[in-house]
């Protein structure tokens, strides 16, 4: 695998989505390629920055009321299809 392929696989590596031979190939490359190691580190930091900085606001209280009212008005058919 060349550096472009390794960098494309970096996201799957840091997300734990690589396994087996694919993972081994990336790890082998990273042992001797400092630039790709830097890339992987940067990808991981970016992901972790997003993860740690995002704060989800509480939805407004009226939203649950709206949803319940909508459900009251829109009862599902007695027997929906299963699929």
């Amino acid at each position: 695998m060349n550096c472009v392929e390794i960098r494309r696989a970096a996201d799957a590596l840091i997300d734990g989505e690589l396994s087996g031979a694919g993972k081994l190939r990336v790890e082998e490359h990273l042992k001797y390629c400092a630039q790709c190691r830097q890339w992987v580190d940067s990808a991981r930091r970016t992901r972790d920055t997003v993860r740690s900085r995002v704060v989800k606001p509480e939805p407004p209280g009226r939203l649950e009321t709206r949803i319940r009212r909508a459900l009251d008005a829109g009862r599902p058919p007695a027997q929906g299809p299963r699929g």
């Binding site: 949803i67 909508a70 459900l71 829109g74 599902p76 058919p77 027997q79 929906g80 299809p81 299963r82 699929g83």
Partner: peptide, 11 residues
């Protein structure tokens, strides 16, 4: 989204 999900909850 909730309304649609409720309508197709049987699926």
């Amino acid at each position: 989204t909730y309304l649609k999900a409720f309508r197709s909850f049987g699926r």
